[in-house]
Design a protein around this nucleic acid. Structure first.
Lengths: 338, 338
DNA sequence: GTGTTCAACTAAAGCGATATAGTCAATAAC
DNA sequence: GTTATTGACTATATCGCTTTAGTTGAACAC
């Protein structure tokens, strides 16, 4: 690869020591304003950029943060949500020329192994933990590895890790209230795997709030998030003697699959069945009828996570808990009066 | 972050010089087999991992390759294809503990700026160029920056860059032949933006092959790949006095959107209209009817790209051209006799 | 028995930045 | 007028690893 100018080259050209150049470029005292200006000018002229590795070696900042997604390659559906998060993070961090190291792995075991690798290779300055689990082995690991970390999706539990979170409980009650107002008395929930915190919270919210509002039925069926299991769960529900009049899906993919099953079984949507998705994406808009869903600015959420992580990296002792806006309900054609 | 063992620690423990340890760990001559074994053992025992930055600084290998996706954030649809590519690349490269630096940017300008940044920061050892354009400004840039690069999707043009490619021309003729065999005489093509090589080739293939087979009509309508424009193009086509009996879509998202439009307009699929998608994904399977599409092992393709890139990094003077298997046609419910 | 060759190391010089301890002149203080 | 106190620098060590140039002792040749 081509030779790039180094700090030494600039120093030579300006006629000062490399140290002075470093001071000037990093905006710290030790050089006169006049010299600083001259150095900055020459640096720009020579098109200088810091050598990441050199900076990392000296100052111990890798200039990258990590985001790992544990997914069975076959379940790899439309990862719209995390694509948006990633985009938001990258936009927020690229200004500081920090890269986001995103990696897909098979399972949590591989994810943990990767964190260990990254830590010992000093590849990242911080981590974002997503898909929070009820009993999450990763929390202990990142604390052991002593890497600044922010979790996404769950209030800072037990003062362990900083987090950016949304209130899944409130989100579910919003949906239930909306459906109840439409006179739905039998609401079902096609959930994700209950090992995930957000799934667990949604299930709990439905159970509690359903009981509180005196619904006739409010059941959650766990799945693995795949379209196949989403479809199967829907089939199960609609085959019951007293099928639900509304189904809430934990993901857009399962909701779309469920809609297909309903139509196939001759259950008109929204006339006989209302469908609500917990996620928004193109998918909810291209199916017919378009799906009522919870929507939020995922892009902004990614940026928020990035900001939060930066703070934690700057001050690792800090414990931040950012509550994000509760997703708002976007009503489309898939819901109607029971 | 916690203190990790260095080569010097290992050297001290084994009782040799750091240089010897480096030789042993990198499998190069200069140490006896006996000492090598001892060093490797101690290294494993101490759980040593190379410090990426140090290695990059000394040996000038960043241990990462880059993949940039230029997308309007709003057009960010189901990036299933590239998610799979990324997965394949990561699996192939993680064994050599090389990371894939994936980044989403707004447009080609930002993409080029990012390449410049990466080059001057020495962040990546190589690049994968995707979404080849007809007149591609990036090619000149990566050559100027002198970064080992592999392009995906187009035969190594003019001996400039190595590439892994699939034959889009043949893919289109496969589809046309299939549809012609079902007596379709009016085939339309909802294409992507014609600035992309693969779109241009598909359009050309349809035009030429359609003429050769004596079809009554074979037209391509360009779009921006969004579901909205895919839907609009479909509406245009179906509103014509003599609408096509088959539509080929350049993406699964547009195909799904097109299907929705057809059903909405009262055009039964596949009775009055056959639909074929150029991409496969969950999307083609959850809609009803499921879409006939071209399918390929994208995951393996990603691995192939990674292997190819490794070769180019090892020997930058080499010019490789790997032709991948032509996607095969998966027939589902969206196509039938005209 | 002297010289040559080779394997198996060690010593030390980078790589490009950062950070800390000095140096030196100019100014301020008493 | 001598001593502090700055400001503006320079010199140098350092980060962890790679790499090149020695160094040493043993094997071998003649």
């Amino acid at each position: 690869m081509a030779n790039r100018p180094t700090i030494a080259d600039i120093a030579k050209r300006v006629g000062v020591s490399p140290g002075a150049v470093s001071f000037a470029l990093n905006g710290r005292p030790g050089v006169s304003e006049q010299t600083r200006a001259r150095i900055l000018e020459v640096a720009r002229e020579m098109n200088w950029r810091p050598h990441r590795a050199a900076r990392a070696l000296g100052g111990s900042q890798a200039g990258a943060v990590g985001l790992v997604l544990a997914r069975d390659p076959r379940t790899l559906g439309s990862e719209h949500f995390y694509t948006q998060i990633l985009y938001g993070m990258q936009e927020a961090l690229s200004a500081r020329s920090i890269a986001v190291q995103m990696q897909l792995v098979r399972d949590t075991g591989a994810e943990i192994a990767l964190y260990r690798d990254w830590a010992s290779e000093h590849r990242v300055d911080g981590l974002v933990l997503v898909d929070q689990q009820v009993s999450d082995p990763r929390i202990e690991i990142v604390r052991e590895l002593d890497i600044p970390t922010v979790t996404l999706g769950l209030p800072a539990t037990a003062g362990l890790l900083s987090s950016v979170w949304a209130d899944d409980h409130e989100a579910m009650t919003t949906i239930v209230d909306y459906l109840a107002a439409l006179d739905h008395r039998r609401i079902a929930h096609v959930a994700g795997p209950p090992i995930y915190q957000h799934t667990a919270r949604r299930m709990q919210a439905l159970r509690e709030h359903g009981a509180a509002r005196g619904l006739d039925a409010s059941e959650s069926l766990p799945t693995d998030f795949s379209d196949a299991q989403g479809a199967a769960a829907t089939r199960t529900l609609l085959s019951r003697p007293r099928p639900p009049t509304a189904i809430v899906y934990d993901s857009d993919l399962m909701a779309a699959a469920g809609l297909g099953v309903a139509l196939e079984m001759g259950v008109p949507v929204p006339r006989s069945l209302s469908i609500v998705s917990f996620d928004d994406s193109v998918l909810t808009r291209i199916v017919h009828p378009a799906l009522t869903c919870l929507s939020r600015n995922t892009y902004a959420l990614g940026a928020q996570v990035a900001e939060c992580l930066l703070e934690v990296i700057t001050d690792p002792s800090s414990l931040i808990s950012v509550r994000t806006e509760t997703p708002r309900l976007v009503v489309r054609g898939s819901t109607a009066r029971a």
